[in-house]
Design a protein around this nucleic acid. Structure first.
Lengths: 218, 218
DNA sequence: ATTATCTTTTAGGCATGCCAAAATTAATAA
DNA sequence: TTATTAATTTTGGCATGCCTAAAAGATAAT
């Protein structure tokens, strides 16, 4: 099996079983990878042989320790590249994902570590997602959704949970970017939208949008 | 045919037909690519169909305009990455080739152009190999330090790397100004100083001074 | 418990990109 | 020119990674 193929499967399984405990169904994998479920079955059998996953037919799949390690390594590479592209090369945060998707397959740990070092070993990428360190350890974050914000509460935007370009562009337009400090002035009772002060300007944030903004309480 | 495969063939053909005129034999390609000659025959037939090469059986191969363009693009990407890895990330010169070999396949021109821009759009990589610009044009003249000049070599002064008034005044005094044409008559074995002919006058240039004079090879 | 529905797996196929060995073609020397 | 040698191409095969369609298995509703 080609490394790139293995990496893509493991990464996807990892992302679908967030806490690395849940079992992933073939259908979901097929959807994410945009391939036929039959192909997933084949691939999983091989990944099982290779000891990257434990796969019981008609039941589901989970990563082995080895598989999880590789997956987390992919997450690290991806997020380091994303951060680098955005922070150092000035790419828009809506552009970085696609490029990182290719760069993450370059097999050279020293390269990733140098890039990380160059940026001061960041713990979060431009989307606010945590970057595991070289040993695969994540920095624990205790962030909340802006939708849980309270009137007069002050917050700092740490990340987003919707990574679609449409969403990211929308946020940028209103200066609701990573690192921005916001203050909730009011919460409309009618629809639950938040009136927040950001960069000295008032912005109305719908509950849906707020639910996709991750903030740290200040 | 996978893009990466195409790219590797075109790049190799390009490198083997330096001036882009010569015909490349299958055997040489097979050797360079570490594959069986039979596989080369197959691949070339496909590349011919795809209009990347003109391939006449039992004769040889040369790149079409399209093929050459792609190949030169690969050269640019490779050399930009090499330069970047060495200059910006501190990789040793022996390490960069292998990594660049992977990075060069990442399909994003904006990325390469940003990297190039970051480094001031270099025309030569640290080896002195020319880096084609985004349009595929090579800079004719190769810039080197005058300290790398060879006996009987003819050069044109293009710039200096020491901008101190003392240094500039010294150069002026000896007519060693931008645009001046110089010829190395001799290199003293004792201290490595160069005897150069400039404006029909002989000048002794110490290694230290020569190291701060940038010249184009004529 | 049985049917209807949905998911997963099996079976058979296809394109890619490589191989080894045999056959052909070209180049070189006698 | 003919024999020898070298390069090239043909042939048949193999692994990868995907596909579609059909069979088998699991799930849920009546």
């Amino acid at each position: 099996m080609r490394t790139e193929t293995v990496e893509n499967y493991l990464k996807t399984i990892y992302n679908l079983s967030s806490d690395n405990t849940a079992v992933v169904t073939n259908q979901k994998l097929a959807d994410k990878l945009n391939i036929n479920p039959a192909s997933v079955t084949e691939a999983l059998r091989k990944l099982h042989e290779l000891k990257y996953v434990v796969y019981e037919k008609s039941y589901g799949t989970r990563l082995t320790a080895t598989g999880a390690k590789m997956a987390i390594d992919m997450v690290r590479r991806h997020r380091i590249w994303e951060t680098y592209l955005a922070k150092e090369l000035g790419f828009g945060w809506d552009e970085v994902h696609e490029i990182a998707e290719e760069l993450e397959h370059v097999k050279n740990d020293k390269l990733i570590n140098k890039l990380a070092e160059l940026m001061g070993n960041p713990s979060f990428d431009p989307h606010g997602d945590p970057i595991p360190d070289a040993k695969g350890k994540f920095q624990k974050n205790k962030f909340v959704n802006l939708s849980e914000g309270k009137i007069k509460g002050a917050y700092k935007i740490m990340g987003v949970s919707d990574h679609s370009p449409v969403f990211l562009k929308y946020l940028e337009k209103h200066q609701l970017i990573i690192g921005a400090e916001v203050q909730v002035k009011n919460i409309e009772e009618v629809d639950g939208s938040l009136v927040v002060l950001c960069n000295k300007k008032e912005v109305i944030v719908s509950p849906k949008v707020a639910g996709n903004i991750i903030v740290a309480v200040k």
